[in-house]
């Protein structure tokens, strides 16, 4: 099915991308932190949509569950609990904004410039139809990537310990 020379797949991708980018910009530009977080959730949904387009259903679900569900809720809690929703963030100066804008623009320009050539050269490696399935993922994770998988557990543990360490109320004199 073609519309204006693009396939449906491409249309969906375009619209989804546009929405995602708009939401991402909203995250940055909105003044209220709570709004920002909510826009972020929307952005994550957009990204999850991309996963679906790539035939990675499991990843899409996980993405929504973890980021939009768990992490964002945590963010919201923190913001609300600490009453950060007030618009009291110190304003950046104009010059720094301009510099940031210019730099961002340049970065975009450069990355686009680099990736522009990609379409011609990229080998069209079409993944198998079941590439995004839990089963496939599991097979890969527990065969080829067993070791990283196990080590990631250590990584997470370390992060956990770190979080506790930071969060723990100091009872005695500083040990460090």
């Amino acid at each position: 099915m073609n519309l204006l020379g693009y396939s449906l797949h491409q249309w969906v991708f375009g619209v989804l991308s546009f929405i995602t980018i708009v939401f991402a910009l909203m995250v940055v530009f909105s003044r209220n932190p709570v709004n920002s977080v909510l826009y972020l959730v929307l952005t994550f949904f957009g990204i999850a949509g991309h996963y679906l387009l790539l035939n990675a259903q499991f990843l899409a679900i996980v993405h929504i569950a973890v980021y939009a569900g768990a992490i964002m809720v945590l963010f919201l809690f923190v913001i609300m609990l600490m009453n950060l929703n007030a618009d009291d963030e110190p304003q950046k100066t104009m010059s720094s904004k301009i510099i940031a804008g210019v730099l961002g623009g340049l970065l975009l320009f450069v990355i686009v410039g680099v990736l522009r050539q990609t379409a011609q050269i990229l080998p069209q490696t079409q993944g198998a139809a079941d590439i995004g399935l839990v089963k496939t993922l599991g097979m890969v994770l527990f065969n080829e990537f067993l070791f990283p998988f196990e080590i990631i557990s250590i990584l997470l543990l370390a992060a956990l310990v770190g979080a506790i360490m930071i969060g723990k109320r100091e009872t005695t004199e500083s040990k460090l």
Binding site: P148, I152, A158, V161, G162, A163, S174, L176
Partner: peptide, 22 residues
């Protein structure tokens, strides 16, 4: 992948430890 995990495994404890002087 191992490289990336290694980098993170090295870095994350250090982020925490750098801030550990309460």
């Amino acid at each position: 992948t191992t490289l990336f995990i290694g980098v993170e495994l090295l870095s994350i404890p250090l982020y925490v430890l750098a801030a550990s002087h309460k």
